[in-house]
Simulated scan of single mutants.
Amino acid sequence: MDTKITQDRLQTAIQLREVGRPQEARTLLLELLALYPDDAELNYQTAWAHDNLGLESEAVPFYLRAIELGLSKDSLQGALLGLGSTYRTLGEYKKAEQMLRRGMQEFPQDRAFPVFLAMALHNLQRHAEAMQLLLTNLAETTAEPSILCYKKALLFYAPQLDKTWANDEKE
């Protein structure tokens, strides 16, 4: 973006979204995007505004364009998660999985990616893999004492939920 005025207008749009006025934010962002169609951050913020309004299908091209144009690390993190989640809500589960796995690779410290991926895997009927992701994240991130005391067991069972240990198997 070229001017401080444009940057101020972008911040205004973000604030509008944050205070629950997404339609006004969307309108302002679309006006800015008409002036600067190749601005990655504007495309990302426009995608986010569309998502907030339940316009997921319309959000997708803005997410894709933002990622293609190159975002800052923080914005890329949000865009990958937003696009992955949006694909899932649109029923495009394979695309959701691909985007969320990319996010996990690029941002391994972000625990939201595996949680959203678990939802996509559930939709893909890959329930054991989804449960493994959820149980592992729960065990590794919870502060709840009644769960923490079972952390070792949760981490042991998470990757082998369908295995049984009948007496005849132990011998």
Rank of each mutant, 00 (worst) to 15 (best):
M119T: 02
Y87C: 02
N137Q: 12
Y87N: 07
T136A: 11
G82V: 11
D110R: 03
K95Y: 01
L134W: 05
K94F: 08
E97Q: 04
L69M: 14
H50F: 15
G70Q: 10
L80Y: 12
A66H: 06
G78Q: 10
V60S: 06
A59P: 07
L71A: 11
L148S: 11
A66P: 01
A40C: 11
Y150W: 15
V115N: 12
R88F: 08
Y150R: 14
G84T: 06
Y44V: 05
T136D: 04
N52L: 15
D38Q: 15
E140W: 07
I147M: 07
M131Q: 11
T136I: 04
M131R: 12
L138P: 05
E58N: 09
G84W: 00
E58K: 15
K151D: 08
T86Y: 05
F113P: 06
V60C: 12
C149G: 00
L138T: 06
L55G: 08
A128T: 09
L117N: 04
L81M: 15
M99N: 02
A158E: 14
R111Q: 15
A40L: 12
Q77D: 04
E41P: 01
A96T: 00
N137M: 07
I67K: 14
L133W: 08
A59L: 11
P159T: 06
H122Q: 07
S146D: 11
T136G: 04
G70M: 07
Y87W: 14
E68N: 12
G91P: 09
F62I: 00
Y150A: 08
N43H: 05
T86I: 05
S146Y: 01
A166Q: 15
Q132G: 00
Y87A: 01
K163H: 14
N43L: 01
L100A: 07
A40W: 11
L138Q: 07
S85T: 11
A96V: 00
P108C: 00
G78C: 08
A120T: 13
A130F: 01
V60N: 06
M104H: 08
C149D: 12
G82K: 02
